[in-house]
Design a binder for these strands. Structure first.
Length: 475
DNA sequence: TGAAATGTTGGGGCG
DNA sequence: ACGCCCCAACATTTC
């Protein structure tokens, strides 16, 4: 009788296109093991919104295959499951987080001590970070040449089908998912999540199909419009590996080749966004301090401010700038925020309030269902101007102009900031300029049912530029 | 994957 | 008729 093989689930909660599972299935009956909170440092454990997602994703997968759920250091738990099942090998996909390598080494050591072989496979990227280098053999620090090299590297490997496997059915200890407390208690802030999301491999596949059918054609022209519905919303599915980036890539390529014309531009734009995710993770792999420290070292001396009230107003969507508040409330209500609005809200925190980007990074980590250590760190540094290939610091978003440009009728603001819903278009992004009578007709009382702007953007901009000058002077 | 400040041009009002 | 000024509208530079 063949001994079972242990498949250690990481951020790959799916059965299709799964090298580790395919290899495990070839060995013998598969023991599916998920370990919560392995040895991830406390501050980077899956945040609140992510834990909601994780619960439902594990529930969805657990309905298809028997899952062994464990909690604690991965090496200890894997060793225990090896002992309980007599499995002869362990298979898992690589993680790129800065702490992952240590965890994976400990698992390997534990396997060796138990006399089991240990196999690591490629992770949740299209290309391994070691494989994409510039002419001088260095990792890229600039996105555009990076993306060109990725496109030139050819199509990702063909997808692996769901392998034929038998699931291990012997006795193994497992936690109960309900006991992990991944779902919010009271108040249940995730009430609105289930209307929008279907975690799990099937939900991910359906989302991809729907995006290609209804969003992709308009993607190139409308992807910056938060009042439209053309973005893929695949990010949380990708984060938990319910779908692989290669699946997404191949699916988009397929319709691009079949339809051509307008879809060419749209598909190209979309695949470039997939490559931003890729770029972020490559940066993280080569510069593991990315989540904590500015990539451009001179920014270590930046005169950030401590502003508890400002941070709180930003988090709660009470800054008095409608597009900022709409974004922060969308995030809280749904676990996601439109990409354009992420840039606007992030710019506001970092440039208008001069609050350290790490504070924003932390908040997004806790509230986004797609919170992803690489993309989150790289994107915050991009906005703050201290990242690799970042926006120059002096590129400061004006929340009024951005709102008027990308949400011209204010539909997005009206949806998420209902107290402003009755304002006419002309004032929806600048309520403080509305005449008294207009405000009264719309039932808006600034300072009572909607805040006055917590900062004057013009003055805040000047202060941000002055802070930047200070930094340059000190350098 | 900005925005504001500054510079340039050209049409029209007007002395 | 002419020059002058004002100021959109657009382009360029600067932050």
């Amino acid at each position: 009788m063949t001994s079972p093989a242990l498949y250690w689930l990481r951020q790959d909660l799916r059965l299709i296109d799964n090298a580790a599972l395919t290899a495990a299935a070839a060995q013998g009956p598969v023991v599916f093991v998920y370990v919560l909170d392995d040895d991830t440092p406390g501050e980077w454990r899956t945040g609140g919104a992510g834990r909601w997602w994780l619960h439902h994703s594990l529930a969805a997968l657990g309905a298809r295959v028997p899952l062994v759920l464990r909690r604690g250091p991965a090496a200890r738990e894997i060793a225990a499951v090896l002992a309980e099942t007599g499995a002869g090998s362990v298979h898992f996909a690589r993680d790129y987080a800065p702490w992952a390598d240590t965890i994976e080494r400990k698992v390997k050591a534990a396997c060796e001590a138990a006399g089991a072989s240990c196999h690591r496979y490629g992770g949740f990227l299209l290309h391994e970070p070691e494989a994409i280098r510039n002419g001088s053999g260095e990792p890229y620090r600039v996105y555009t040449p990076f993306s060109k090299t990725c496109f030139a590297a050819g199509e990702p490997k063909p997808l692996k089908p769901v392998p034929r496997f038998t699931a291990f059915t012997g006795a193994v200890k497992s936690d109960r998912l309900e006991d992990w407390g991944l779902l919010p208690g009271k108040p249940d802030w995730a009430k609105g999540f289930s209307k929008l999301w279907t975690p799990g491999e099937e939900g991910a596949a359906a989302r991809l199909k729907d995006f290609i059918k209804t969003g992709l054609a308009a993607y190139a022209d409308e992807r910056d419009r938060p009042d439209r519905d053309v973005t893929s919303r695949l990010s949380p599915h990708l984060h938990f590996g319910e779908i692989s980036p290669a699946q997404v890539w191949h699916a988009v390529r397929k319709v691009q080749l079949a339809a051509g014309g307008k879809l060419d531009k749209a598909a190209e734009k979309f695949l470039k966004e997939v490559l931003w995710r890729e770029f972020s993770y490559h940066l993280l792999t080569h510069w593991p301090t990315l989540p904590a420290e500015p990539f451009r070292r001179e920014f270590r001396g930046f005169p950030w401010r401590e502003d508890v009230d400002g941070l709180k107003a930003w988090q709660r969507g009470l800054t008095g700038y409608p597009i900022v508040d709409a974004g922060m409330r969308e995030l809280w209500a749904t676990g996601i925020m439109h990409n354009r609005v992420r840039m606007i809200t992030a710019s506001f925190l970092v440039k208008d309030l001069l609050i350290p980007w790490q504070e924003g990074e932390r908040w997004f980590w806790d509230t986004l269902v797609d919170a992803d250590i690489g993309s989150n760190a790289a994107s915050w540094q991009w906005v703050a101007g201290c990242g690799a290939d970042a926006a120059p610091y002096f590129r400061i978003f004006n929340p009024v102009l951005q709102g008027e440009k990308f949400d011209p009728q204010g539909a997005y603001v009206r949806k998420w900031v209902p107290e402003l819903a009755r304002l006419p278009d002309a004032f929806i992004h600048r309520p403080w300029e509305a005449p008294r009578l207009v405000l009264a007709a719309a039932d808006v009382e600034l300072g009572r049912n909607y805040p006055n702007p917590i900062v004057d953007h013009g003055k805040a901009r000047d202060a941000a530029l002055a802070a930047f000058q200070e930094l340059k002077g000190a350098a």
